[in-house]
Design a protein around this nucleic acid. Structure first.
Lengths: 136, 136
DNA sequence: TATGGACCCTGTGGTCGCTACAGGGTCAAG
DNA sequence: CTTGACCCTGTAGCGACCACAGGGTCCATA
């Protein structure tokens, strides 16, 4: 386990493909612990921060909410606990994703049939407008 | 063309399955014209408002943004114009929906394989946590 | 006529996850 | 010693609402 060089916020941002403001935001909402500061009041991060932020970013890329990530991070600390709770969070999220896909697919079908009806005439006889308007 | 009874905000809300606050919000952001008021300062709506709000709600249910709906409503006023612009907005939205579906499906696959690896042991050897943690 | 409760009003603050300033301070290279 | 890239805090904004608080109105019933 190598100990990396300390990073300032810009370097950490680059290393994790995160905006500087986003890192400060994670600190504000308690996802990332407040790091030490230089005499000039610059934040300095170590590899623990780097690891934690990488975790957060990967989980975000998988669509987990910050609350879910907070829970996952808490669980990850407790190395002896059963990982069932982790599984529950992941499955919950998968369920949400599935629901969203189904909803969007239904939406897609409706939109598609709407668009298929367009005869490219005047607005007055536009099927899309008709379908949205209530007097039909 | 029947002229409906004037509605107060609560009745309009019920008629369009919209929250009262949402109707006031649409007025604030200029989607719904400010209606007349009673002497007691209550909003009173007519069937034009009802039609417009129904349109907005249907478009919202199809996932159009308020900006897109504003554009659709503007186009709908101009009955002689070609409806191609309407088609463009709808197709644009369809494209966004398609993109979201593709993204969510990729996400779903990743999440699914993550969850499939769970051996229900201790957090220390949890594959889900591992997959999110950076030291892998 | 009084009263109670259902409705309405405005204005403000919260949600989620950031992003974008403004107005300053710090630091390292040239 | 100056320049310019970085950093700091704090605040406001995004989209599309939702949820109050603290008041006013309206109507039916006692």
């Amino acid at each position: 386990m190598l100990v990396e060089k300390p990073l300032n916020i810009g370097a950490l941002a680059k290393a994790t493909d995160t905006k500087v403001e986003t890192i400060r935001w994670y600190e504000r909402v308690g996802l990332l612990p407040a790091p030490a500061r230089t005499t000039g009041n610059y934040r300095i991060y170590d590899d623990v921060h780097l690891g934690r932020l990488s975790f957060i970013r990967r989980a975000r890329n998988l669509g987990f909410s910050l609350d879910q990530i907070r829970a996952l991070l808490d669980l990850a600390e407790d190395r002896d606990r059963s990982c069932d709770a982790v599984d529950v969070i992941a499955r919950e999220h998968l369920g949400e994703v599935d629901r969203k896909i189904v909803d969007l697919q239904a939406l897609r079908r409706e939109l598609d049939s709407l668009i298929g009806q367009c005869r490219h005439g005047k607005v007055a006889e536009c099927r899309i407008i008709d379908a949205l308007a209530p007097s039909t």
